[in-house]
Structure formats: C-alpha cells, structure tokens
Simulated scan of single mutants.
Amino acid sequence: MRVNLFGTLVASTALALTTTVAATAQQTGAGQGSNGQGQGWRGRGMGFPGGGRGVLGSVTEVAADHYTIKTDNGETYTVHFSVNTRIMKEPAGRRQGGGGDAEGGQRSTPQVLKSTDIKVGDFITAGGEVDAAAKSIGAVFIAQIDPERAKQIREMEANFGKTWLAGRITAIDGTTITIEGAMDHTPHSIMVDENTSFHQRRDSITLADIKPGEQLRAEGAVKGGAFLATTVNAMEPQNRGEGSPQAPASQPKPQ
C-alpha cells in the first residue's frame, strides 16, 4: 500500500493499528488526539482508532527535532516530533493482525523511549498530521518496531481485502455487513453464512449481537467476487451512546 493509497495507521495504528493498526495504535491510543482525528493514513501502516494519518519506514537520519525515513516505495518523509510526541517501542510477541486482545490474548505494555533511542536503520511508524506535498508529518505518536514486525505489517497490507478486513460497521443488511475500511476508509461488504463464527473478546456471539458503529475484524477469503468471512471479531465502541462511536475518551491537555 503506497503513500497516496491509504486514505490511509494505525496504526494504525492501530489499528493498527490497528488495527490497527491498528495494532500498535490500539495499544498506545494514538490517533485519538486532536491531530488527525477523523482522518486516514497517508502512508504504509495500519489505521488508527478514530482515524489517524501515518507513515512507516526505515530511519535514514536522526536530528534533534525530526527523523528522516524512507518508505518501501522509495519516498522520503520527514517525521517531526516535540516534547508532546509519544515515542515508544512496540512490545515483542505481538501477533500478526493485532488481534490478541479481541481474541483473548494477553496484551503487553509498550516501552517508553527517548527521542535519542531511535537510531538510523530502525523501522518506525508515526501517526499525526501529514503534509503529503511536503512529505512530512507532525507526529503525535512514534513507535519503533522490529524488522520482523515491519514485514508482517507489509504482508497484512498486501492481504487487506483478500484474507482479512477491519473497520467500523456502517450497515447490516441480512447476511451482509458493510464497513468503512480501517486502512482505506472506503466501503467494504462482508458476507457471512452458517459457517461463520462470531466473537467479542473471549465470548461467542451471533450476527444479531453486532451493531452499526462497532469495530470489527473479519478473516476469510474472496469467493465469487465477494469477501466471505470465516470468523468475525467485534469490538464495542468506547463511548457508545455519546453520539460518536469513535470519539476519544479525553482530549490531550495543552502543554
């Protein structure tokens, strides 16, 4: 997934971060602040909860107030940070897809880093406000990830819409669930049948238990031009009944 495709995080995330993005973003709460709320990624990486733009790449330069990174497609981005930027290291052992929490897995705590802990050659993902023309991002959140995890993220991106989907439910019509994709912010239809299993964290649920506004992750395959889910994991929105299923619990305080 290229920089101009992720309308597009998390890390997402995260979700990424999901998921996720993202995956990383789900752990850190990135994307829920005032920078990037309700927007999408502009780089490689998982969508953040509440929306959030971001980039993923290898660090080529470290400075006092920014990093320079190179994305997979060879573009160079400047990642600006300040004392308000959250910098951390993603915990080891995260399962691909970041579904550990939704599937009952144990969640690890990210390690807080100093800006000087990031070195040339490290892989980082950053979420914040992207200036696509200037190829820069004002980072709210930066996470250092290991090369194996970066490889997993690339594989996840390549398989989005093929073997898995994630996003916010916008409609349910019979056995068709429509979501706003966490990675591309476009509509996707998910078909379910009698063989589809439904879960919410560790609990088994049914299609009737899933409501518009909730987040879900589905795994399956494309059959006959439609995405048929074998498993669906649903997550209740944090602030149900407050008018915005993805509204942050609190806004960051001015420094």
Rank of each mutant, 00 (worst) to 15 (best):
V83Y: 01
M191G: 01
G241K: 05
N233E: 12
E90T: 11
D173P: 00
A63I: 06
L216K: 01
Q152C: 01
A22Y: 08
S189T: 13
S244L: 01
T196D: 06
V140M: 07
V59N: 09
S244D: 15
D184R: 10
G100R: 13
G38R: 05
D209Q: 12
E157H: 12
G128A: 03
F81T: 01
I87D: 08
V112G: 00
G33I: 01
S189W: 00
E61I: 04
W41S: 06
N159E: 14
A139K: 07
H199G: 07
I179C: 02
G50V: 00
F123L: 13
G29A: 05
G98M: 13
G52A: 09
N84E: 15
A134C: 04
R240C: 00
A139Y: 08
K89A: 12
V130N: 00
V21H: 13
A126S: 10
S12L: 07
E90K: 12
A221R: 08
E180M: 07
A218M: 05
K114C: 04
D146Y: 05
I172D: 03
G51F: 03
A133E: 10
D117E: 15
A247Q: 12
D72P: 02
A208R: 12
E75L: 05
T20W: 12
I145H: 09
T163C: 00
K119C: 03
T18I: 09
M183Q: 14
K114E: 15
G105E: 11
I177F: 03
Q96I: 10
Q251N: 08
Q238P: 01
S34Q: 11
R217A: 10
